[in-house]
Design a protein around this nucleic acid. Structure first.
Lengths: 137, 137
DNA sequence: TATTGTTATACTCTATAACTATA
DNA sequence: TATAGTTATAGAGTATAACAATA
Protein backbone atom coordinates (compact mmCIF):
# COMPACT_ATOMS: atom_id res chain seq x y z
CA UNK A 1 0.00 0.00 0.00
CA UNK A 2 1.40 3.40 -1.01
CA UNK A 3 0.00 5.15 2.02
CA UNK A 4 2.05 3.04 4.42
CA UNK A 5 5.23 3.79 2.52
CA UNK A 6 4.41 7.47 2.70
CA UNK A 7 3.70 7.36 6.43
CA UNK A 8 6.96 5.48 6.96
CA UNK A 9 8.85 8.07 4.95
CA UNK A 10 7.28 10.89 6.95
CA UNK A 11 8.12 9.23 10.26
CA UNK A 12 11.67 8.49 9.23
CA UNK A 13 12.31 12.01 7.97
CA UNK A 14 10.73 13.36 11.14
CA UNK A 15 13.17 11.51 13.37
CA UNK A 16 16.03 12.64 11.17
CA UNK A 17 15.11 16.31 11.37
CA UNK A 18 14.47 15.92 15.10
CA UNK A 19 18.02 14.62 15.36
CA UNK A 20 19.41 17.70 13.63
CA UNK A 21 17.31 20.07 15.75
CA UNK A 22 18.25 18.26 18.96
CA UNK A 23 21.95 18.35 18.16
CA UNK A 24 21.98 22.03 17.23
CA UNK A 25 19.85 22.92 20.24
CA UNK A 26 22.10 20.95 22.58
CA UNK A 27 25.10 23.01 21.47
CA UNK A 28 23.36 25.97 23.12
CA UNK A 29 21.64 24.09 25.95
CA UNK A 30 18.26 24.26 24.27
CA UNK A 31 15.88 21.33 24.28
CA UNK A 32 13.64 20.63 21.31
CA UNK A 33 10.82 22.32 23.20
CA UNK A 34 12.82 25.42 24.08
CA UNK A 35 13.93 25.59 20.46
CA UNK A 36 10.34 25.53 19.39
CA UNK A 37 9.36 28.17 21.94
CA UNK A 38 12.03 30.50 20.57
CA UNK A 39 10.86 29.81 17.02
CA UNK A 40 7.25 30.59 17.85
CA UNK A 41 8.01 33.72 19.82
CA UNK A 42 10.03 35.19 16.97
CA UNK A 43 6.86 36.65 15.53
CA UNK A 44 4.26 36.33 18.28
CA UNK A 45 3.54 37.58 21.79
CA UNK A 46 1.02 35.03 23.10
CA UNK A 47 -0.40 34.62 26.55
CA UNK A 48 0.70 31.59 28.58
CA UNK A 49 -2.44 29.58 27.88
CA UNK A 50 -2.27 30.22 24.13
CA UNK A 51 1.35 29.16 23.94
CA UNK A 52 0.73 26.03 26.02
CA UNK A 53 -2.17 25.05 23.76
CA UNK A 54 -0.12 25.68 20.65
CA UNK A 55 2.68 23.46 21.97
CA UNK A 56 0.24 20.82 23.19
CA UNK A 57 1.53 21.15 26.76
CA UNK A 58 -0.12 21.63 30.11
CA UNK A 59 -0.06 25.20 31.42
CA UNK A 60 1.97 24.07 34.44
CA UNK A 61 4.61 22.63 32.12
CA UNK A 62 4.80 25.92 30.31
CA UNK A 63 5.24 27.80 33.59
CA UNK A 64 8.42 25.83 34.25
CA UNK A 65 9.65 26.15 30.68
CA UNK A 66 9.20 29.92 30.72
CA UNK A 67 10.72 30.16 34.21
CA UNK A 68 13.92 28.58 32.97
CA UNK A 69 14.05 30.59 29.76
CA UNK A 70 13.39 33.78 31.73
CA UNK A 71 16.18 32.95 34.18
CA UNK A 72 18.50 32.76 31.19
CA UNK A 73 17.31 36.13 29.93
CA UNK A 74 15.81 34.72 26.74
CA UNK A 75 12.16 35.58 27.31
CA UNK A 76 10.17 37.91 29.54
CA UNK A 77 6.70 37.96 31.02
CA UNK A 78 4.49 41.00 30.52
CA UNK A 79 1.23 42.18 32.00
CA UNK A 80 -1.86 42.30 29.88
CA UNK A 81 -3.74 45.56 30.38
CA UNK A 82 -7.10 44.12 29.27
CA UNK A 83 -7.15 41.25 31.76
CA UNK A 84 -4.96 41.27 34.81
CA UNK A 85 -5.01 37.50 35.13
CA UNK A 86 -3.22 37.12 31.81
CA UNK A 87 0.54 36.86 31.37
CA UNK A 88 1.99 37.61 27.93
CA UNK A 89 5.32 36.10 26.86
CA UNK A 90 7.83 37.52 24.44
CA UNK A 91 11.48 37.26 23.45
CA UNK A 92 14.09 39.58 24.90
CA UNK A 93 16.63 41.03 22.46
CA UNK A 94 19.05 38.31 23.59
CA UNK A 95 16.38 35.67 23.00
CA UNK A 96 15.66 37.00 19.53
CA UNK A 97 19.34 37.00 18.69
CA UNK A 98 19.73 33.42 19.88
CA UNK A 99 16.61 32.37 17.97
CA UNK A 100 17.94 33.87 14.73
CA UNK A 101 21.34 32.29 15.31
CA UNK A 102 20.04 28.84 16.00
CA UNK A 103 17.51 28.79 13.19
CA UNK A 104 20.19 30.10 10.85
CA UNK A 105 22.28 27.15 11.90
CA UNK A 106 19.39 24.77 11.30
CA UNK A 107 19.13 26.15 7.77
CA UNK A 108 22.84 25.70 7.21
CA UNK A 109 22.72 22.17 8.63
CA UNK A 110 19.88 21.11 6.35
CA UNK A 111 21.01 22.94 3.24
CA UNK A 112 23.41 20.22 2.04
CA UNK A 113 20.42 17.90 2.11
CA UNK A 114 17.96 20.23 0.44
CA UNK A 115 20.57 21.19 -2.13
CA UNK A 116 20.41 17.65 -3.46
CA UNK A 117 17.17 18.65 -5.14
CA UNK A 118 17.08 20.93 -8.13
CA UNK A 119 14.87 24.02 -7.64
CA UNK A 120 11.89 22.45 -9.39
CA UNK A 121 11.90 19.39 -7.15
CA UNK A 122 12.42 21.58 -4.10
CA UNK A 123 9.34 23.62 -4.94
CA UNK A 124 7.39 20.45 -5.52
CA UNK A 125 8.45 19.04 -2.15
CA UNK A 126 7.40 22.23 -0.37
CA UNK A 127 4.08 22.04 -2.16
CA UNK A 128 3.52 18.37 -1.31
CA UNK A 129 4.41 18.82 2.36
CA UNK A 130 2.04 21.74 2.49
CA UNK A 131 -0.76 19.69 0.98
CA UNK A 132 -0.19 16.74 3.25
CA UNK A 133 0.32 18.39 6.59
CA UNK A 134 -0.83 21.94 6.41
CA UNK A 135 -4.50 21.25 5.88
CA UNK A 136 -7.42 20.85 8.22
CA UNK A 137 -7.71 17.25 9.39
CA UNK B 1 15.71 31.68 -1.49
CA UNK B 2 13.94 28.39 -2.23
CA UNK B 3 16.15 26.44 0.14
CA UNK B 4 14.93 28.41 3.17
CA UNK B 5 11.32 27.72 2.26
CA UNK B 6 12.14 24.04 1.98
CA UNK B 7 13.91 23.96 5.33
CA UNK B 8 10.98 25.78 6.92
CA UNK B 9 8.55 23.29 5.42
CA UNK B 10 10.63 20.39 6.71
CA UNK B 11 10.83 21.85 10.21
CA UNK B 12 7.13 22.61 10.31
CA UNK B 13 6.13 19.15 9.11
CA UNK B 14 8.57 17.65 11.60
CA UNK B 15 6.90 19.37 14.55
CA UNK B 16 3.52 18.34 13.24
CA UNK B 17 4.43 14.66 12.96
CA UNK B 18 6.15 14.84 16.35
CA UNK B 19 2.85 16.11 17.73
CA UNK B 20 0.98 13.14 16.31
CA UNK B 21 3.57 10.66 17.59
CA UNK B 22 3.65 12.27 21.03
CA UNK B 23 -0.11 12.23 21.36
CA UNK B 24 -0.47 8.61 20.28
CA UNK B 25 2.43 7.55 22.48
CA UNK B 26 0.99 9.38 25.49
CA UNK B 27 -2.23 7.38 25.19
CA UNK B 28 -0.13 4.34 26.08
CA UNK B 29 2.37 6.04 28.39
CA UNK B 30 5.11 5.97 25.79
CA UNK B 31 7.42 8.91 25.28
CA UNK B 32 8.68 9.79 21.81
CA UNK B 33 11.92 8.03 22.68
CA UNK B 34 10.22 4.86 23.93
CA UNK B 35 8.10 4.90 20.79
CA UNK B 36 11.21 5.04 18.69
CA UNK B 37 12.86 2.26 20.67
CA UNK B 38 9.88 0.01 20.02
CA UNK B 39 9.96 0.92 16.33
CA UNK B 40 13.63 0.12 16.01
CA UNK B 41 13.45 -3.16 17.92
CA UNK B 42 10.65 -4.44 15.70
CA UNK B 43 13.24 -5.80 13.32
CA UNK B 44 16.53 -5.63 15.17
CA UNK B 45 18.25 -7.08 18.23
CA UNK B 46 21.06 -4.63 18.89
CA UNK B 47 23.45 -4.42 21.78
CA UNK B 48 23.03 -1.54 24.22
CA UNK B 49 25.84 0.54 22.75
CA UNK B 50 24.58 0.13 19.19
CA UNK B 51 21.08 1.19 20.14
CA UNK B 52 22.34 4.17 22.13
CA UNK B 53 24.45 5.31 19.18
CA UNK B 54 21.57 4.86 16.78
CA UNK B 55 19.32 6.98 19.00
CA UNK B 56 22.04 9.55 19.62
CA UNK B 57 21.85 9.00 23.38
CA UNK B 58 24.41 8.31 26.06
CA UNK B 59 24.68 4.68 27.11
CA UNK B 60 23.64 5.60 30.65
CA UNK B 61 20.47 7.18 29.29
CA UNK B 62 19.71 4.01 27.43
CA UNK B 63 20.21 1.92 30.57
CA UNK B 64 17.41 3.84 32.26
CA UNK B 65 15.19 3.72 29.22
CA UNK B 66 15.57 -0.04 28.89
CA UNK B 67 15.16 -0.50 32.65
CA UNK B 68 11.75 1.14 32.52
CA UNK B 69 10.64 -0.68 29.38
CA UNK B 70 11.81 -3.95 30.87
CA UNK B 71 9.89 -3.30 34.08
CA UNK B 72 6.79 -2.93 31.93
CA UNK B 73 7.51 -6.20 30.18
CA UNK B 74 8.02 -4.60 26.76
CA UNK B 75 11.67 -5.49 26.19
CA UNK B 76 14.19 -7.93 27.56
CA UNK B 77 17.94 -8.08 27.95
CA UNK B 78 19.87 -11.06 26.62
CA UNK B 79 23.40 -12.31 27.01
CA UNK B 80 25.73 -12.29 24.06
CA UNK B 81 27.64 -15.56 23.77
CA UNK B 82 30.54 -14.04 21.83
CA UNK B 83 31.35 -11.34 24.37
CA UNK B 84 30.15 -11.56 27.93
CA UNK B 85 30.36 -7.81 28.44
CA UNK B 86 27.68 -7.25 25.82
CA UNK B 87 23.95 -6.97 26.51
CA UNK B 88 21.55 -7.52 23.61
CA UNK B 89 18.08 -5.96 23.68
CA UNK B 90 14.93 -7.23 22.03
CA UNK B 91 11.15 -6.93 22.19
CA UNK B 92 9.06 -9.33 24.22
CA UNK B 93 5.88 -10.64 22.57
CA UNK B 94 3.95 -8.01 24.52
CA UNK B 95 6.36 -5.34 23.33
CA UNK B 96 6.00 -6.45 19.74
CA UNK B 97 2.25 -6.40 20.02
CA UNK B 98 2.28 -2.90 21.48
CA UNK B 99 4.70 -1.73 18.80
CA UNK B 100 2.46 -3.03 16.03
CA UNK B 101 -0.60 -1.50 17.67
CA UNK B 102 0.91 1.89 18.14
CA UNK B 103 2.49 2.11 14.71
CA UNK B 104 -0.78 0.96 13.21
CA UNK B 105 -2.42 3.82 14.99
CA UNK B 106 0.21 6.23 13.71
CA UNK B 107 -0.61 5.06 10.18
CA UNK B 108 -4.32 5.54 10.76
CA UNK B 109 -3.72 8.96 12.27
CA UNK B 110 -1.67 10.14 9.32
CA UNK B 111 -3.70 8.48 6.59
CA UNK B 112 -6.31 11.24 6.31
CA UNK B 113 -3.40 13.57 5.61
CA UNK B 114 -1.58 11.33 3.16
CA UNK B 115 -4.84 10.49 1.42
CA UNK B 116 -5.05 14.09 0.30
CA UNK B 117 -2.46 13.20 -2.32
CA UNK B 118 -3.26 11.09 -5.32
CA UNK B 119 -1.05 7.99 -5.66
CA UNK B 120 1.29 9.65 -8.13
CA UNK B 121 1.99 12.58 -5.84
CA UNK B 122 2.37 10.24 -2.88
CA UNK B 123 5.03 8.26 -4.71
CA UNK B 124 6.75 11.46 -5.66
CA UNK B 125 6.75 12.70 -2.06
CA UNK B 126 8.26 9.43 -0.86
CA UNK B 127 10.91 9.75 -3.52
CA UNK B 128 11.71 13.37 -2.70
CA UNK B 129 11.95 12.73 1.04
CA UNK B 130 14.23 9.83 0.32
CA UNK B 131 16.49 11.97 -1.84
CA UNK B 132 16.63 14.81 0.65
CA UNK B 133 17.12 12.99 3.90
CA UNK B 134 18.14 9.46 3.20
CA UNK B 135 21.50 10.22 1.64
CA UNK B 136 25.01 10.52 3.04
CA UNK B 137 25.65 14.06 4.29
C1' DT C 1 -18.41 30.37 39.59
C1' DA C 2 -15.10 30.16 35.84
C1' DT C 3 -10.60 31.31 34.05
C1' DT C 4 -5.50 32.38 34.24
C1' DG C 5 -1.50 31.26 35.98
C1' DT C 6 1.70 29.32 39.67
C1' DT C 7 3.26 25.86 42.98
C1' DA C 8 3.92 21.21 45.00
C1' DT C 9 4.74 16.67 43.80
C1' DA C 10 6.15 12.71 41.27
C1' DC C 11 7.97 10.57 37.37
C1' DT C 12 10.57 10.28 32.92
C1' DC C 13 14.46 11.77 30.09
C1' DT C 14 19.04 13.23 29.75
C1' DA C 15 24.28 13.72 30.46
C1' DT C 16 28.55 13.37 33.39
C1' DA C 17 31.37 10.91 36.40
C1' DA C 18 32.58 6.91 38.83
C1' DC C 19 32.26 2.19 39.00
C1' DT C 20 32.34 -3.27 37.75
C1' DA C 21 33.16 -6.90 34.71
C1' DT C 22 35.18 -8.55 30.71
C1' DA C 23 38.39 -8.35 26.85
C1' DT D 1 44.54 -0.79 29.13
C1' DA D 2 40.28 -0.42 26.61
C1' DT D 3 35.43 -1.50 26.07
C1' DA D 4 30.44 -2.64 27.60
C1' DG D 5 27.30 -1.64 30.66
C1' DT D 6 25.34 0.06 35.25
C1' DT D 7 24.75 3.28 39.05
C1' DA D 8 24.75 7.76 41.43
C1' DT D 9 23.68 12.31 40.85
C1' DA D 10 21.71 16.47 39.11
C1' DG D 11 18.87 19.06 36.17
C1' DA D 12 15.23 19.58 32.52
C1' DG D 13 10.65 18.23 30.79
C1' DT D 14 6.13 16.55 31.75
C1' DA D 15 1.28 15.96 33.92
C1' DT D 16 -1.98 16.09 37.96
C1' DA D 17 -3.84 18.32 41.78
C1' DA D 18 -4.29 22.15 44.73
C1' DC D 19 -4.04 26.90 45.07
C1' DA D 20 -4.37 32.41 44.50
C1' DA D 21 -5.90 36.21 41.90
C1' DT D 22 -9.01 38.10 38.78
C1' DA D 23 -13.13 38.07 35.95
Amino acid sequence: MTSDALVDALVRSTFQVVGVLTRIGAERDLSLTQLRVLGILRDRRPRMTELAAFLGLDKSTLSGLIDRAERRGLVARGKNPQDRRVVDVFLTPAGLELAEQVYGEVRRALTPATARLDPQDGDQLVQLLHTVLHSPD
